[in-house]
Amino acid sequence: MTVAAILTNKGPEVVSARPDQTLEAAAKLMTERRIGSVLVREGDEVVGILSERDIVRAIAAKGAAALGMPVSSAMTREVVFGHPSDTVDRVLGLMTERRIRHLPVKDGGRLIGLVSIGDVVKKRIEDVEQEAEGLRAFVHGAG
């Protein structure tokens, strides 16, 4: 029921882009990897996050020329981080409140993974299904 449990199943891989890469290169990377965002890093430091929405906004503002612009021109600079001990419900609330779909996770200042809204919803559904199965077993055992 925590982010740590999600990352245990999902794994620690985080796909990244550099601030100087073009939006086109980042979009191709996201398409190839079938993901909706990339962390923007300079070395080990996270300097932003770029989502599909950020790319769409840039294209809406600048047209096709936006694809030649650097990732740094469209990325979100204020990155919100989660912690492995965060509950699924807390993360869902945070994502809803901040209107974000991707949450990088740090432990002790070290990046350890990234969870998406899809990962969190999937875990929540699994938890509810397990609880329902437990209740069914209890009811059938009590009868």
Score class of each variant (00 low, 15 high):
Gly134Val: 05
Ala17Trp: 00
Lys62Ser: 08
Val80Glu: 15
Val115Met: 12
Gly108Val: 14
Val46Thr: 06
Val46Phe: 02
Thr8His: 12
Asn9Phe: 08
Arg136Phe: 08
Lys28Gly: 00
Val121Asp: 05
Arg99Lys: 12
Ile55Asp: 03
Arg18Glu: 03
Ile35Met: 06
Leu135Pro: 05
Glu97Ala: 14
Leu92Glu: 11
Thr31Tyr: 04
Glu52Ile: 02
Val88Tyr: 06
Val91Asp: 10
Lys106Ser: 09
Ala27Glu: 00
Val79Lys: 14
Phe81Asp: 09
Val80Phe: 15
Glu133Ile: 13
Gly43Trp: 01
Arg90Ser: 09
Gly68Leu: 08
Phe81Ser: 15
Phe138Glu: 08
Gly108Arg: 12
Asp20Asn: 02
Thr8Trp: 11
Val91Leu: 13
Arg110Ile: 15
Lys106Pro: 04
Val15Gly: 05
Ile125Lys: 02
Ser51Tyr: 01
Arg124Phe: 00
Ala142Glu: 15
Arg90Cys: 04
Val71Pro: 09
Pro12Ser: 15
Thr31Phe: 04
Val46Ile: 09
Leu67Asp: 13
Lys62Pro: 02
Gly108Met: 11
Ile117Pro: 04
Gly36Glu: 01
Ala58Glu: 12
Val105Asn: 07
Gly43Val: 02
Asp127Lys: 05
Pro12Glu: 08
Thr22His: 00
Arg57Lys: 09
Leu103Tyr: 03
Arg34Asn: 04
Thr22Leu: 00
Ala74His: 10
Ala66Glu: 09
Thr2Phe: 11
Ser73Tyr: 14
Val56Ile: 14
Ala66Cys: 15
Gly36Arg: 02
Val71Phe: 08
Val105Trp: 07
Arg110His: 11
Gly113His: 12
Thr2Leu: 13
Ser37Met: 01
Val38Lys: 01
Ile6Pro: 07
Arg124Leu: 02
Ala25Gly: 00
Ser116Lys: 11
Arg77Asp: 07
Val80Trp: 13
Glu24Cys: 00
Gly48His: 05
Ala5Gln: 12
Lys106Arg: 15
Ala65His: 10
Val56Arg: 02
Val91Tyr: 08
Val91His: 12
Arg53Phe: 05
Leu7Glu: 06
Phe138Ser: 06
Val91Ala: 06
Arg98Lys: 14
Ala26Glu: 01
Val79Met: 14
His83Ser: 14
Ala27Lys: 00
Lys62Asp: 12
Arg33Pro: 03
Lys122Asn: 06
Lys10Val: 13
Arg18Thr: 01
Arg53Met: 04
Arg136Met: 07
Gly11Leu: 15
Arg57Ile: 09
Ile112Lys: 13
Gly63Gln: 04
Val128Gln: 08
Ala66Ser: 07
Gly36Gln: 01
Leu39Ser: 06
Val88Asp: 01
Arg136Gln: 13
Val88Ser: 07
Asp119Val: 06
Ala58Asn: 02
Ser16Asn: 08
Ala60Val: 10
Arg110Val: 15
